[in-house]
């Protein structure tokens, strides 16, 4: 799997004060690979993917994204963030900007794309997540599922090489989960490299190349979906699966 790693994480350690949240995390992600990270709450899975685009600082270890190295000093944060898109649990759309403005902000101000081109590109991405007709509305006028799809489009406008999803469906009504997951499945089908923290085991089974199970800040088990669900190795994994798959 590690022929062409686009994200390489070696010996990642992080402490909140004295609390050791991430312990010796080593993960290589190949180009086009879809990794689902799951685990009980408080296991450090969100903290882990937030380290990849330096929303969290870490004390030890090395993260390399597309050849750009991010050490504990976080020197090349801006370069890394341009390559990595992120979708949050609580959407975090900018409420004072329209959907279209949300999607053109970064291209215009970070990549210095002319406004017209940025808008055309943004419309293309909004079509891809199937909400081009909402472009001139404000986020608060959309449903949760639509907002999350806008958030995905917003991340895509920077043409990232890697997409991080931090529990993208946890804040959604059950009826809206599917539209977001469908968008993510489409994205996976187009060959996007994805790291997804989620409890949607159906999605994991369908889309993931690998499932990483975390607990207490460490990786307990990494496996293919088929093996993970049918034949979990570690006792903690078995317990977890028995809790969520009833």
């Amino acid at each position: 799997m590690t022929i062409d790693p686009i994200v390489g994480i070696v010996g990642l350690n992080k402490w909140y004060g004295d609390f050791h949240v991430l312990r010796d995390i080593d993960v290589d992600v190949a180009k086009g690979e879809r990794i689902v990270i799951c685990g009980p709450s408080g296991s450090g899975k969100s903290t882990f993917i937030r380290c990849i685009n330096a929303l969290e600082e870490f004390q030890e270890g090395r993260i390399v994204v597309d050849g750009i190295e991010l050490g504990p000093q976080l020197r090349r944060v801006d370069e890394v963030r341009r390559e990595v898109g992120m979708v949050f649990q609580s959407f975090n759309l900018f409420p004072h900007l329209t959907v279209l403005e949300n999607c053109t902000l970064a291209p215009i101000w970070v990549r210095h794309v002319p406004k017209k081109d940025a808008e055309a590109a943004a419309m293309k991405y909004l079509e891809r997540v199937k909400i081009p007709h909402q472009a001139n509305k404000y986020p608060s006028q959309l449903s949760g599922g639509q907002q999350q799809r806008v958030a995905i489009a917003r991340a895509l406008t920077m043409s990232p090489k890697v997409m991080l999803f931090d529990e993208p469906t946890s804040a959604l009504d059950p009826e809206m989960v599917k539209e977001v997951l469908d968008t993510m499945v489409d994205l996976a089908g187009e060959g996007m490299t994805m790291l997804v923290v989620t409890h949607e085991m159906g999605f994991a089974r369908e889309v993931a190349n690998r499932i990483v199970f975390m607990d207490a800040g460490q990786i307990i088990e990494t496996n293919t979906p088929a093996n993970f669900f049918a034949n979990p190795q570690h006792a903690r994994t078995k317990l977890f699966l028995s809790q969520i798959l009833r």
Partner: peptide, 29 residues
């Protein structure tokens, strides 16, 4: 909310641009 500046950072905006385009306009409103 902290998520606003996090989202702005995540799409690559610098601190100054985050403040000028995302945080301050909302705060002043």
């Amino acid at each position: 909310p902290r998520g606003q500046s996090e989202a702005a950072s995540a799409i690559g905006l610098s601190w100054w641009k985050t403040t000028a385009l995302i945080v301050m306009p909302q705060a002043l409103r």
